[in-house]
Simulated scan of single mutants.
Amino acid sequence: MDERSISAELLRLCNKVQQEFPTPTIGEEKWFLLILSALTSAGKPGLAADFYLHLIEQPQYSSFQARQQLMRRLREALVKAVSIIGVCRPLEAIMCIDAVTAEGDKERTCSREGWRADDENHRRGTDWLMKLYGDNLKQIDEIFNNQRDFGWISREITYGLYLSDHTILDGAETELVVLSGIMAQDLPKMVGWHLRACRRIGFSMEDCEAIQRCIELCIEFAGVHLGPMPKVKDIEHEV
């Protein structure tokens, strides 16, 4: 086991996010998905190793089975992040985690063996897109009619392969990963879309406000400056 300890600064960030995160309504053991996605997306994938070591020190991960489940969830968050930020930073993060993982804790399953871009994949991706976007998807589809490669990628890959697969992370957890990754890239239009999506899948306005504050804490920690971002109140009329 690697004997490095988490930095005082990163520990303060973890504690602050845990305090701010709306755990009573969103659920336990979800806050760390937000931190992992935000820091990786903001250009700090190397911190994933220390973050992982910090997590497995918590009493709820004292058993082998709990650490295996944690690894699957962390890996799935990074797999989903690939569809939002590209492969390099998530790959760097998971390689850093792997380098400090005890040999006995290695988790070697593959969640997407046998995946096919078939009718079922298309249906699942389209259904999740519709749940998040609803009638707003029509305007985007008009663009996709002109730029068909991106329409295909969106339905078959971004949503079909990655974001509509809820076997490890559910829909709410997936949106935590997505919103964090998008905010870290300073993309206000898409931040608005996914704040709206969070509301549509059941997050309250207060939940969204707290989640956005947590993401901002992570991005500030990473030293990334963001331009003006929409708030949930700005998109509430669209929900």
Rank of each mutant, 00 (worst) to 15 (best):
R213Y: 11
A81M: 05
M130N: 13
M190P: 01
E206M: 10
S37M: 03
I219R: 00
D2F: 11
I157L: 14
S5P: 00
M130L: 14
S41C: 06
Q18R: 09
E156F: 11
P228Y: 09
V191D: 01
Q147N: 13
E113Y: 15
F221A: 01
D119H: 15
Q68T: 08
A117T: 05
G227W: 09
V87M: 15
K80L: 07
K106S: 07
W152C: 08
L226E: 04
A66N: 12
Q65Y: 12
T109M: 11
T101W: 05
L91S: 14
V191T: 13
G27C: 07
K131L: 11
Y61S: 09
Q69D: 07
A81K: 01
T101N: 07
I235M: 05
C208Y: 01
E156T: 13
G171H: 08
F150L: 14
E173W: 03
R75G: 02
L187F: 10
R199P: 03
F203K: 03
F221D: 00
E236S: 10
K16V: 05
H225G: 10
M1G: 12
C96F: 08
A184F: 04
C198G: 05
F51E: 02
Q65C: 10
E173L: 06
F150N: 06
D186F: 05
P188Y: 03
M95R: 12
L179R: 02
P24A: 11
R67W: 06
M183L: 13
A48K: 01
L132P: 00
W128M: 04
I35S: 03
F32Y: 14
C96L: 10
A49Q: 03
D119P: 04
F21H: 00
I6W: 09
E156M: 15
K233P: 06
G134E: 08
Y159V: 00
